[in-house]
Design a protein around this nucleic acid. Structure first.
Lengths: 238, 238
DNA sequence: ACCTGAACACCGTTCAAGT
DNA sequence: ACCTGAACACCGTTCAAGT
């Protein structure tokens, strides 16, 4: 589990990409707040100030981490399926890239339009909404939000914040569940009814699939509403 | 605009609430990363270590900030409207509390079940989904996600990251738009088509209303699908 | 081109002490 | 009960210098 702690490494020169990859690994292991110029330098056997040759400031390192995640997205090939189905495939591909790195995803929403791979993902998403009949303002608003909503899906996975070591994780889940069960049944009956599933996600795959169904269902609803408006505006068109 | 900078204030003893409120104001003005034990102490005319009498550690200060925002939510009274309509009203109330404090909302998803006011919001949300026919696992998964999706709605508002001073803001929007317009029209035709709306939100109210329509439409879709399943399982019920 | 070393301003936090 | 003061380990960043 613990990441390369093999002390100072003599090796070929550093690269932006190598630093960003080890930063992602460090975030995966210990959280985003563990990603520090000084710790990364130590892992690479180098002085903290050496990193400033590769990145002008820490924010550019975070940009590099985000870019790596966007580059992991395996966009499905375009096909002739209905646009809603293709949209679901695109969002699933984004989700698949994010799930291994939940600690990093908070970096993505503000950086998607500044990253080449993020732009490719955005282009695919927006073009499918356009095919659904949305005007440019709606396309931008809904498309941009959908991508952030996928990020939020990872952030909000029940039980995601618990530790990953099995025993400590079980303890945390039990403690969370107990704290919910102990609430007033008069004021919080439904929280208590849901306590198990709020404390931990029994099946993450079902959590993701069901909420994706919801998002796609919502997009379909608003696209259909636009069609109805168009029908109403052009009464006996066709 | 600038916040009470009137130097050391001699006054009645500090309180958790007063510190959390000034922390929110500081985040509104200068972003969450400006919220520092030392700066807050300075604003209150007190030594940094004085804050440790009120909060065991900085994380508890962040808890207090989140609790204040949850307490701002004005939950609508229960009524006899369809559950989807009531759910929309609850989400609108949450959104109204968040919009004045976009820099703070990232604190909320991980803290909602640890805050009394957050639990009240969760209870209302879950109880309406239960009324929609969802089982406890789905209720927890969808309800928890919906609340995070509202937070993401604020985070992802186009143009939200630009500065708030009018002139600098116009410059940032123009620069963002120009950078999108300059992309390859062959590879990014739809991004270019949407460039204006991606660079800035012409009407935030419409952005929020339209995406809320989408979320409510999605919840309705999955609840209806459950009804259909039930109908199929009990063929000529009724 | 790529990295070191010294230095600076700024963090969160502990602990003993004051009133 | 509420706050001060000194101290510690840890940040990001600049700049001049080395090879």
């Amino acid at each position: 589990m613990a990441n390369r702690r093999t002390g100072p490494q003599r090796q070929e020169p550093l690269s932006r990409e190598a630093i960003a990859l080890s930063a992602i690994a460090l975030a995966d292991d210990e959280g985003l707040e563990a990603v520090t110029i000084r710790r990364l330098a130590q892992q690479h056997g180098v002085t903290p100030t050496a990193l400033y040759w590769h990145f002008k400031e820490k924010d550019q390192l975070l940009d590099g981490m985000a870019e790596q995640l966007f580059a992991d997205v395996q966009l499905p090939p375009e096909d002739s399926a209905p646009w809603q189905h293709q949209l679901r495939s695109v969002l699933e591909a984004f989700l698949a890239a994010l799930r291994p790195h939940p600690a990093v995803v908070a970096l993505l929403p503000s950086r998607i339009l500044a990253s080449p791979a993020g732009l490719a993902l955005t282009e695919r998403t927006l073009s499918l909404l356009r095919r659904g009949g949305l005007q440019p303002e709606r396309t931008a608003e809904v498309g941009g939000y959908l991508l952030s909503a996928i990020v939020a899906l990872v952030t909000a996975e029940p039980g995601r914040e618990h530790p990953s070591e099995e025993e400590a994780r079980d303890d945390a889940i039990r403690a969370k569940r107990a704290s919910l069960i102990a609430l007033s049944p008069r004021r919080f009956p439904t929280v208590i009814w849901c306590a198990d599933a709020l404390a931990n996600c029994a099946s993450p795959d079902e959590y993701y699939a069901f909420n994706l169904d919801m998002l796609i269902g919502g997009v379909t609803t608003i696209a259909d509403a636009l069609d109805d408006d168009a029908d109403a505006a052009l009464p006996r068109s066709e």
